[in-house]
């Protein structure tokens, strides 16, 4: 999961302090693993260096947590690109995909597109596996089937998410 893209996405709705960013991330995505402050500072400084965010202002009292960040145009483009690029189909993608979907909803992008794109990517892999399975021996078939079933599980989760996008949108907006 790309923390940088996630924080960038969170900034799209308006400038925030580093402390706010950590709290928002923890609430929405970090259910079991809260972000360390250090992770936030190092990520933000990398983004700052790459020109994706700027420092919008520093409140009195000093300290790194008092810096307020804002996203740049380059930053917005970066988020859009990241969302539109399907993940390489592999097991245990859900946390990344989930983040992407929520971010898309938060930033008023079309979450269904993300799902369709991802499905297409998955199918591409599945076609290759299916083709190999058809041409291979029994061992090949069993190995391919294992992969296919995993991919299918992801896809089914995708379909389910897509079917629940409206509910998710409400939930995300409420937070």
């Amino acid at each position: 999961m790309s923390i940088g893209h996630t924080l960038l996405g969170l900034l799209e709705s308006g400038p925030r302090h580093g402390y706010d960013l950590k709290r928002a991330f923890d609430e929405k995505f970090g259910h079991d693993r809260p972000l360390h402050y250090g992770q936030v500072y190092s990520t933000m400084s990398r983004l700052l260096k790459n020109g994706l965010v700027v420092v919008d202002g520093i409140e009195a009292g000093g300290g790194p947590e008092r810096k307020r960040y804002a996203i740049t145009d380059a930053g917005i483009t970066d988020v859009a690109q990241w969302l539109a690029t399907p993940e390489k189909p592999e097991p245990y993608l859900q946390s990344t995909l989930y983040t992407k979907v929520v971010l898309a909803l938060l930033t008023h992008r079309d979450a269904a597109d993300i799902l369709d794109t991802q499905r297409s990517e998955h199918l591409r892999s599945m076609r290759i596996l299916t083709d190999r399975k058809r041409k291979g021996d029994l061992a090949d078939q069993l190995i391919c089937d294992h992969a296919l079933f995993h991919l299918e599980a992801d896809l089914r989760w995708l379909e389910l998410t897509a079917a629940r996008l409206d509910k998710l949108r409400e939930a995300v907006a409420a937070q």
Partner: peptide, 26 residues
Amino acid sequence: EARVAAYSDREIVVRDGRSRDMERVV
């Protein structure tokens, strides 16, 4: 079913009565 669709050359997605040709999008 994805595993059935995997036997196809390409897929189109129909949602709310509108179709989407995934090959052209990508």
